[in-house]
Every structure is written in structure tokens, then in C-alpha cells.
Design a protein around this nucleic acid. Structure first.
Length: 582
RNA sequence: GCGUCUGUAGCUCAGGGGAUAGAGCAACGGACUUCUAAUCCGUAGGUCGUAGGUUCGAUUCCUACCAGACGCGCCA
């Protein structure tokens, strides 16, 4: 919470041109209303209809102060607002006091800022170099990388870029699921139904086959589960055969994951997975013991959380081996020590909410104030057209297959629509992959999604390719005009409806980036980009940019440049490429 | 049983105490000799799950209920 307060404070000092700030000042200085500037600032809202004005001050709250009807108050205030070069007019409409921005000022200020900041437009130093650890992706070794892993991977990657853009120093950690009973299961299955040759040949597909086979057989013979636990126990105790198999399976998986990360162009600062904390478990158990937090229960060691209305947090199984909460606690202690994070984010499925609540509480009970800096960033489930994904049953869509299909489809479209395009394969990759990533980031994290091939391969409407296409069109205009960013242009040339609307939307970008950070919600940016692209396309159809009128063309080019720049920045924050042609 | 999340147009989703609830897809009708038609314009489509409550005002907040998804000791 400390961090959030700090962030709030910084936002008030943002360097971006801020109409709310200006209007709050005008109201504050013109009307004696017992509200301070900050309170006025927070009441200001964007009207639902552009014909009503650009910013509105609702007067309901003042009716208690003045003991008058809000409509009368608005009317009263109308004449008391000092004039300003930024504001064209102030009109009371019902209980609202509506403000119109002076268009030339707006255009001039906003576009000059984009011209001078370029792709840094929207960037701020809110973080002041503080560290943010982001734990994301974290696929399980020996299981295929499927569409269910997409959310964590792309949400985490986008948050990384958003926080970085706002001045934080990010540490991306791929907390690989490279430890735990599933390795016992895999070794059991390997010993019974696999061989060195079949694994060498089939790689992850073979590991997956063995994993599925294990669960089929375990249905009939529950004794297999015990065998699997035994093997995992051997791994934890350093049995050589078990460790070698573990290492081998891990290498096979990592190679597979790396291929996907390369396609997505995602990098991590650390690959310290669960196994990395193996030698740090004992110290955690000792510390919990020393702090009197451990209890024995049914042979296992737990932290009782009854008084917090939560089930107990399991620390050690009755056979003495660790559980994922144990490893998460060890990892958090290590990360605090190593990175001294301002926040540590965990991007995982909503199903794990209770788990995080539990061990966050354990950290708090250990006396660490920074438990407040641990944040679970949950997201909803991915279903498979009516069915649930299940690695155990082999019911999955591999991410690699999905990406290959969308790239293939993109290439077909390019060949059909733009046969002369150079480097078709490279661009098809950027667009096809972008479609998948945008699809995953365009709705609220928390929603469950149903994966559907027809939707994944549809590139019309609110999609990644739509944004990229809009960007490519803007680039095309700038290229044809030989445009170079240059701050001399006449804002009066941009006073038509489509242009003004675009400038207002551009003006909102820095605010949207901050909201996306505060809510840990990349979809704020994807939704914004859709609106920006829609408005640009309307402008594109309505207003010819390359015209004989030099002043008009120059001004419109600046606007096109600004849109193009923000589309590119926004896509970058989502982890999506912005090709200049497609 | 207890708990969490979700419920808005046929479908997928925005919005989130305040002015007439918005997009996209699908459907239908238009716009390519013109800066890339992966585009644009138009038509149609809604008791914001139900019932109460708080409020000057609720689709938004609270409570209960209904529906779906998920979670609740040795998996992660």
C-alpha cells in the first residue's frame, strides 16, 4: 500500500499536459466552495457525449455546501470561472459545468509533446528506479507449452514493459515448475513404459505421452501415486539416478520452451525455478519453527491460519518433502534479499488465489512488513471450445501449433492482398504472433476465455492485425511524403471534427498507461489502441493527407505521425511488433 | 458445507454512483481508376441475472437469491 500511495503522489506531479489540473485550478480560484484543488480534480470527468463538452464538473456534491439545487449551482458557477487561453468556453448544462478546450491550444500542446518525446510519449519516472519483480509464465517442465500458459506469459511480459516505461527497474523471473511430484510421476512412467530411445526420438511429445499414460494407469492402480512420491523423494534426497533423469527431462523441456519464447520475443532476467530453492527450504522450516509458527498435523507440518479464516498452509509433507507453498516462501525471502523489490508480482491463474493469500499471510506472520508488497495478479481460465484443457488427458492446443497456424493464415492473406510485399515471411510472423498476443490481452485478465480456432484466425475488427494494419497505413503515408518529425506546423489546420477527436484521444494516452499499471491490466492499453485506431481510420477516410495545400498537408502529417507513434508504443507495451508495411 | 470469481445486444466483450448503456463478430444495405478495402459508412439488435436496500441519483455500491466457473492438508 505504501507503494500505491507513492504512485498516487507522483501522478499529481506528472509532466504531461493536464487539463484536469488546469480546470481544477480555475474552479478553485474562481469559486469558493470548500473543496480543495485535489478534491475538485478527482470530481472532474469526461462527458459521455462529445457534444456536451470535453471535461465536466458535476455539481451534486456542492448542493450540501451551498444548500441549493445542483442545476442552480452550475448556472451560478458558469460566470465565475476565470478565463484561460486553454479553455474556449464554459457552459452549465443541467447539474454539470462543462468545459470546452481551446482547440488550437490542445492540438499545439499535445502534438508538440508527441513530436518532442517520440516513442517515449507517455513514459514517466514514477518508479524512480525502484525494483519490481515479476514472476510470470512459469510453465511446468515435462509438460507441453499450451494455450493455457499464454495468459501468464503475455500478461507478465506486458506488465514488465509497462512498469519499465514508467521508470521502474523490472526483474522478470520464469519460476519454472521444475520440481515436485510430477517428476516422480514422470520417472515412474518412464521406467515402466518408456526408454532412452523413445524419449530421445519423441522429446516432449514422448514425455507428455508418458505423463498422460501415468494418469490413465493411476486411475486403475492408485499404488502408482505412492511410487511417484517415492521417486520425488529420491530426487529431493539427491539420488543419482533420479537426479540424472530429472536433469535430462528438464533440458528437453527448456529447449521446447525456448523456441516459443523466441517466437514471442520474450526474455527473462532469471530462470531460477522451483528447484533453485531446494537448498533454501531447510532454513525456512527452521525459521518458521523458531518463530513458533509450525504445528504438526496428521504427520505433516503446517502453519495454522484458523484465526484468519483460512485453511492451514502446508509446509512439509509427512515424508518430509516440501510443497509449493514452502518453495514460494523460500523464493520470496530470497528475492527480497536479492532484489529488494518495491513489489513482487505473481502472474498466475485465479485458481491459486487461496494459495497466495495463505502464504502471503505466513510471510506476514513471520514478521515481514514487506508481505504487503507481494501481489497476486490472477487471470481467468482458458477452455477449449466447450471442454476444459487437460494436460493429464492430453487435451490441449499447443502454443507452437497455434502460432504456426496464425502465421500461416497471415501469409495467405498477405499473398492475396499485398503480393508485392517484401519479406513476407517475417511480416507474417509479426502479424500472426501479434494476433495471438493481442487476443490474449484484449479482455480483462479475470475473464475466463474459450479458445476457438475461428476466432484466433479472424483478423477483422478489434484484433491485433487491425491495429498493426492501421499503423502500417500511417507509415505508408509518412513514407510517401518523406516526413521527418519537425515541430513547425499550423494547428489551425486541424480543426475538423475527426482531427480534434484524434488529438483528444492522443492526449489520453499517458493517463491510460498509468491506469494500466495501477490496475495491472494490459487490456486498458489494448482497448485504448482499438479506439485510437478506429478514430484514425475514420480520419483516414474523411481527410486526404497528401494534398496540394502545403500547410494543411504538413499539419495532417504531424497528426498521422503522432498516431503512428502511439500505436507503435502501445503495441510495444503489449509485447507486439509494429511492422511498417503489411 | 464454506469461500473466491463471473453474469451487459444472437456471440465475444468495453464501461463502472451521475447526463440518451457502447464496440467488434455474425446478419442485412452501401463505399475500392483516389494516401494499403486486414478499411470505412449505414440498418437492425438491450427489463445491464432476479429481488430488496443505501443514495438527490444504482447497470455500477451493499445484502439475499439464481446460474456458471473455480478453490478448500500432504499436486502445482
Amino acid at each position: 500500500m505504501k507503494l500505491l500511495k507513492k504512485i498516487e503522489g507522483d501522478i499529481m506531479e506528472q509532466k504531461y499536459f493536464d487539463y484536469k489540473e488546469i480546470i481544477a485550478e480555475l474552479i478553485y480560484s474562481g469559486v469558493e466552495c470548500q473543496l480543495d484543488k485535489d478534491e475538485i480534480y478527482k470530481l472532474l470527468e469526461y462527458p459521455p457525449d462529445e457534444n456536451l463538452g470535453d471535461l465536466a464538473f458535476p455539481c451534486f456534491k456542492l448542493s450540501k455546501v451551498f444548500k441549493k439545487a445542483p442545476i442552480a449551482i452550475a448556472k451560478d458557477m458558469e460566470g465565475k470561472i476565470p478565463s484561460s487561453s486553454y479553455i474556449k468556453r464554459v457552459v452549465a448544462t443541467g447539474p454539470y459545468l462543462n468545459f470546452w478546450f481551446a482547440p488550437e491550444q490542445l492540438v499545439e500542446n499535445v502534438l508538440q509533446q508527441v513530436l518532442s518525446s517520440g516513442e517515449r510519449f507517455g513514459a514517466q519516472n514514477i518508479g524512480d528506479g525502484r525494483n519490481i519483480v515479476i514472476d510470470f509464465s512459469a510453465p511446468n517442465i515435462a509438460k507441453p507449452f499450451h494455450v493455457g500458459h499464454l495468459s501468464s506469459t503475455v500478461i507478465g511480459n506486458s506488465l514488465y514493459k509497462i512498469f519499465e516505461f514508467l521508470g521502474f527497474n523490472c526483474v522478470g523471473i520464469n519460476h519454472l515448475g521444475d520440481w515436485g511430484t510430477q517428476f516422480g510421476k514422470l520417472i515412474t512412467a518412464y521406467k515402466k513404459w518408456g526408454s532412452r530411445e523413445t524419449v530421445e526420438k519423441g522429446l516432449i511429445q514422448e514425455l507428455m505421452r508418458l505423463y498422460v499414460k501415468f494418469h490413465e494407469e493411476a486411475e486403475k492402480d492408485p499404488g502408482l501415486e505412492d511410487e511417484a512420491r517415492e521417486w520425488f523423494n529420491k530426487i529431493e534426497n539427491g539420488n543419482q539416478e533420479a537426479l540424472e533423469l530429472w536433469k535430462w527431462f528438464k533440458e528437453i523441456s527448456l529447449e521446447e520452451f525456448q523456441r516459443v519464447y523466441e517466437v514471442l520475443e520474450i526474455n527473462f532476467d532469471s530462470l531460477a525455478g522451483e528447484s533453485f530453492y531446494n537448498d533454501k527450504i531447510e532454513a525456512v522450516v527452521q525459521e518458521l519453527k523458531a518463530k513458533n509458527l509450525l504445528q504438526e498435523s496428521e504427520g505433516a507440518l503446517i502453519v495454522n491460519l484458523d484465526q484468519y479464516e483460512m485453511p492451514p498452509c502446508l509446509i512439509l509433507k509427512k515424508d518430509g518433502s516440501s510443497l509449493y507453498a514452502t518453495r514460494d516462501i523460500a523464493a520470496a525471502l530470497y528475492r527480497k534479499k536479492t532484489y529488494n523489490f518495491a513489489q513482487c508480482l505473481y502472474v498466475t491463474g485465479i485458481a491459486q488465489s487461496l494459495h497466495f493469500q495463505q502464504w502471503f499471510k505466513v510471510i506476514e506472520l513471520m514478521g515481514y512488513e514487506w508481505s504487503k508488497e507481494l501481489v497476486h495478479i490472477p487471470f481467468g481460465w482458458v477452455n477449449l471450445e466447450g471442454e476444459k484443457l487437460s494436460t493429464r488427458k492430453g487435451k490441449v492446443v499447443l502454443l507452437e501449433d497455434l502460432l504456426r497456424e496464425t502465421v500461416k493464415r497471415t501469409l495467405e492473406i498477405i499473398k492475396e492482398k499485398n503480393p508485392g510485399l517484401e519479406e513476407k515471411e517475417e511480416i507474417a510472423k509479426e502479424v500472426g504472433v501479434g494476433a495471438v498476443v493481442f487476443g490474449a490481452l484484449s479482455v480483462n485478465r479475470i475473464k475466463d476465455v474459450t479458445f476457438s480456432w475461428s476466432e484466433a484466425l479472424n483478423f477483422d475488427g478489434e484484433t491485433g492485425p487491425y491495429i498493426q494494419y492501421t499503423h502500417a497505413r500511417a507509415c505508408s503515408i509518412l513514407r510517401k511524403a518523406g516526413f521527418k518529425p519537425d515541430s513547425s506546423f499550423d494547428p489551425h489546420q486541424l480543426c475538423n471534427k475527426e482531427a480534434i477527436r484524434l488529438v483528444k484521444t492522443i492526449y489520453l494516452f499517458p493517463e491510460k498507461v498509468v491506469t494500466a499499471m495501477k490496475e495491472y491490466e494490459p487490456s486498458i492499453i489494448s482497448r485504448y489502441l482499438i479506439v485510437l485506431a478506429q478514430e484514425f481510420n475514420a480520419f483516414y477516410h474523411e481527410c486526404q493527407v497528401l494534398v496540394n495545400d502545403e500547410a494543411l498537408q504538413k499539419a495532417r502529417l504531424v497528426l498521422v505521425y503522432a498516431v503512428k507513434t502511439i500505436l507503435a508504443t502501445g503495441l510495444r507495451l503489449l509485447g507486439i511488433k509494429a511492422p511498417e508495411r503489411m
